[in-house]
Design a protein around this nucleic acid. Structure first.
Lengths: 324, 324
DNA sequence: CTGAAAGCGCTAACAA
DNA sequence: TTGTTAGCGCTTTCAG
């Protein structure tokens, strides 16, 4: 940059100001600087800028598993939204492990990221306090508020209610749930919501018909199996997400169980492939693209220092297909 | 860091050397420094280090689409491999567009990334020359060599041969291909390989039975449709990847075409969901996890300055399921 | 074995 | 409207 300054016959401060526009510059010197920049093929060093300003152009996306299509789509949409502003997305897979969640958060802090978008699982609720202190924007994408940070959350009551009504309409009464991990911070909000609407729909969910596990295909397979091994197996099973529902289908096939003949199945998220498996998966759609966009907007608002909504909800809706 | 130095009664250089181990330090001072570090809760600032050394802890993963499960899995496995060494993965979705490919490469350069893993599509073959100049390690994941950089590539001849033989064994002769973009750098190596083995298997691929498009579901849907609209439609269709094959299935369903009754379908990659769609997709497996690991190893070898293999091939194999 | 000090490239007071 | 300069926090040469 000092090279450019010399070539343009100005100070390096002026070059900086020409580039940032944070101070008025005469058209003449502006031209001269740009000419020098072009001539020398100069590009700003973002690292030096980060060191100086304490803010990088990186946004940390901290999620359990980028191979889960929901998060992959979220990542893509987030990147799409922030790219125009020069931000990059660094993807951090926590496997829903608390140590990894903390480690990535710590590293994000050290790296002076411009912001964090996270789906926390086992974090302590005060984990983001440090970020508030460091004035680093944080957006949490989760079904339930988490600490004192901006939130993107599903508006899923209608959808869940519709799903349960639909299940009830097909004459099923005993409902099981393949829920998220028992030790997740704040429990499993999706399970809570299901429980909340079950009674209204005339459905019963007994304790033995709720199993906990990770949000993975393997956990879904195992959870479904345990549910079907109970004395009176559920007539319908809701899964915490589509990936676990697919795991459930794995088991159903292995056990020779027919879906929806022997048991109905409902997922969550509506990932692309939910419509492709057989039977086509009935699910509660939570659009990952919209979630990514919402998170991006919340984050950018914070970065810009504008008053931010503390919370955006994304409408979920019920998608009836063939698994119920 | 100067705080730590002061607290430990040493110079900041010594603190640096204690941390890096690049110079012998007496056990005594080492202890003192560590004590001070713990007491003050000090952590190294990676940004300052990057500015000084010209190398960050970021690895750029530049791919067409992270929402394609193949790349999502690649990303996860890459991150897994490099994480222990302190590296992070920033994901860059190019949508297979040349301008984005170039832009991300340029940005990676500015950011002084530790390395680049890329699947290029429309880049000029000399695009990596700058990286060689800047001594930034690059690994390309592609079906064909690309410029003068390390390569992770499928060893797919046996698999493709097996696939075509399998197709021929079912009595089909006219084969169509939903190939990659016509203007991709170096054409479509998968198409080439298919052509190469077709004759041997006694199959014929006419010009009108090769259609080009992006590696997307939509392009697959369109390509399949065009193929099926030819005067004598192919009896079997090979797709450049599983995502396009799924697109083909979309169209088949819309048109009321039975797979494999009316036309057989073969994919590429064997993403998780290939086994879940109906009919289960027969495909040529190219394991994304192994590709990510191979890329990571190649990259780390380069970072460590060790003599690197210029090329690693990952065995592909034929997976016969129900779509042929 | 340790310290002093330069400097990576930028931004933002402060001064003119 | 522009310039001077300090300093972000680290690594590494050079000197001891």
């Amino acid at each position: 940059m000092s090279d450019v300054a010399r070539a343009a016959g100005v100070s390096s401060a002026t070059v900086s100001y020409v580039l940032s526009g944070k101070r008025p510059v005469t058209e003449e010197t502006r031209q001269a600087v740009h000419a020098a920049i072009d001539r020398l093929g100069f590009t700003l060093n973002p690292v030096a800028r980060t060191l100086r300003t304490g803010r990088s152009l990186m946004i940390a996306l901290i999620v359990p598993d980028i191979a889960n299509p929901f998060y992959a789509l979220l990542a893509r949409s987030l990147q799409n939204e922030v790219r125009a502003r020069g931000y990059h997305v660094v993807v951090c897979n926590t496997e829903a492990r608390r140590d990894e969640e903390q480690a990535f958060l710590q590293e994000a802090l050290q790296q002076r990221v411009a912001g964090v978008v996270m789906t926390p699982f086992r974090l302590a609720a005060n984990a983001f306090d440090v970020f508030r202190g460091a004035a680093i924007p944080v957006v949490v994408s989760a079904d339930t508020p988490f600490g004192d940070v901006d939130l993107v959350t599903p508006d899923a009551d209608d959808a869940v209610s519709a799903a349960l009504t639909h299940v009830a309409d097909t004459g099923r009464r005993r409902v099981g749930v393949v829920a998220g991990p028992r030790d997740a911070t704040g429990g499993d909000p999706r399970l809570k919501r299901i429980r909340q609407h079950a009674a209204t729909a005339g459905l019963s969910i007994t304790e033995e018909h709720v199993v906990h596990g990770e949000h993975t295909r393997e956990a879904g397979a195992k959870g479904f199996e345990r549910l079907m091994q109970t004395r009176r197996p559920p007539e319908a099973i809701l899964c915490v997400n589509d990936v676990t529902a697919v795991g459930a289908m794995d088991t159903a096939e292995r056990l020779g169980l027919d879906i929806p003949g022997d048991v109905a199945l409902v997922g969550h998220d509506d990932i692309d492939f939910a419509a492709l498996v057989r039977p086509r998966l009935t699910t509660i759609r939570y659009p990952a693209g919209a979630v990514g966009r919402a998170a991006a907007h919340l984050l950018l608002e914070q970065i810009d220092g504008r008053t931010h909504q503390r919370r955006v909800s994304v409408k979920a809706d019920f998608v009836a297909r063939a698994s119920v």
